[in-house]
């Protein structure tokens, strides 16, 4: 048992190190963007699209990072911008269905299931659930 615990502990430490390498740069970039006004421009540009999900424009950055890189990159951006708990839940729901698309699609491809089935399914669920959850939380606010 002690060996399992030790080995699990080190896996945890390695995973934390790995996610720190993703989160820290993203957090810094978003903080710098926010300080020098770049974030405002991105937010303004994506405002109309993100509105569908009841999210502020900045959330577009989180969605792109989550889908292209991974959930920890998305988290780095999430903790650097301010969101309500309802908005966080909507974003987390959307990202839950669709994230790390490059890495995970490569694994799924090996099961023999075509990407043309999987990718639209994931992105479609992200958009659909995001719209529903956005409406619900928007309605509550």
């Amino acid at each position: 048992m002690i060996n399992s615990i030790k080995s699990g502990f080190w896996t945890g430490v390695r995973t934390t190190g790995m996610l720190a390498r993703v989160i820290v740069p993203v957090y810094f970039i978003v903080a710098i963007l926010s300080r020098y006004g770049g974030l405002e421009q991105i937010a303004h540009f994506f405002e109309p699209v993100m509105h569908i999900f009841g999210l502020p424009g900045e959330a577009a950055l989180v969605l792109v990072l989550g889908n292209v890189v991974n959930l920890y990159a998305a988290l780095g951006a999430i903790v650097a911008i301010s969101l309500t708990s309802g908005q966080l839940t909507v974003l987390a729901l959307m990202l839950g269905f669709s994230h790390s698309l490059f890495v995970e699609s490569a694994v799924v491809k090996k099961t023999g299931v075509p990407i043309r089935v999987i990718l639209p399914l994931r992105l479609g669920m992200m958009i659909l659930v995001g719209m529903i959850a956005g409406q619900l939380t928007g309605g509550m606010a």
């Binding site: 615990i5 699990g8 896996t11 945890g12 430490v13 957090y27 810094f28 988290l75 650097a80």
Partner: peptide, 22 residues
């Protein structure tokens, strides 16, 4: 800010990995 976030996450990840290994 980044440090606090990572610390928080490590408090989840490390115990989780121990449970998974067991």
């Amino acid at each position: 800010g980044a440090g606090v976030s990572i610390l928080k996450l490590s408090l989840i990840i490390i115990p989780l990995m121990i449970v998974m290994q067991v």
